[in-house]
């Protein structure tokens, strides 16, 4: 079976992966086992390798852009740093290269941190990922499939379809309208088949009180 290597990751963020390579990288990222699958020779230092991977990738990125700072914001531990690499690598493909249309259409995210949120700026809207949130954004289809909870801050009036990771075609939800300047929280229920729940900041009052408090604390709102 093919492995995810530094070369493959760099190829991925350049938008040069074949469909199967792209799926391999995203599967690896979404598996939650990314750290464990980083095969190292005996005695090699994992954190050193992770730093080198990051340096390798960062050399290819333009300076003074928000995604250069992203790993610093989110990276307190090596595990988080590695996650940051992939967020940056994938976001880079969308934001900077434009890439081929296919390459720019979707990317995956995974906030592996147990405590910290992570921010992504995506043009028409920003999203903040709660700890342990994982998913894929498809710009072409204006959709996000995810598990966990995310905060969406539209910079323009937009429409997005939000689905749980395990959705099937029959579960696909209608597009939600998101208004510029408002803040929205979307989250998935404990069961894979449950639809995503989307509420504006103001409509948090309709959620269970314990969940309201949890989301307010999580996103500092």
């Amino acid at each position: 079976m093919a492995r995810v290597t530094q070369a493959l990751i760099e190829k991925y963020h350049r938008g040069e992966c074949s469909r199967s390579e792209q799926e391999l990288v995203e599967q690896w990222l979404l598996s939650g086992d990314a750290d464990e699958q980083l095969d190292l020779p005996p005695g090699e230092d994992r954190e050193q390798h992770q730093r080198e991977i990051w340096r390798g990738i960062s050399r290819t990125l333009p300076r003074n852009q928000w995604y250069r700072r992203l790993p610093v914001r989110i990276g307190k531990t090596a595990a988080v740093l590695l996650t940051g690499i992939f967020l940056v690598a994938i976001a880079y493909r969308i934001v900077v290269t434009g890439g081929s249309r296919n390459a720019a259409e979707s990317f995956a995210f995974h906030n592996k941190s147990a405590n910290d949120v992570q921010d992504l700026q995506l043009g028409a809207y920003d999203i903040t990922l709660a700890p342990n949130s994982i998913g894929t954004i498809n710009h072409g289809q204006q959709s996000i499939a995810f598990t966990g909870s995310i905060l969406i801050s539209p910079k323009a009036d937009i429409e997005l379809t939000l689905n749980g990771m395990q959705y099937t075609a029959s579960d696909v939800q209608p597009k939600h309208k998101f208004k510029k300047g408002e803040i929205y929280i979307a989250f998935t229920g404990p069961d894979a088949g449950e639809p995503v729940i989307v509420v504006s900041r103001r409509d948090l009052t309709y959620l269970p009180d314990v969940l309201q408090k949890q989301l307010m604390n999580q996103f500092s709102i």
């Binding site: 709660a130 700890p131 342990n132 949130s133 598990t147 966990g148 909870s149 989250f187 998935t188 229920g189 404990p190 269970p208 314990v210 969940l211 949890q214 989301l215 999580q218």
Partner: peptide, 12 residues
């Protein structure tokens, strides 16, 4: 009393 279960669930 409560504790969170994952990103968007809780128990009592």
């Amino acid at each position: 009393y409560h504790h969170p279960v994952g990103a968007s669930d809780y128990t009592t």
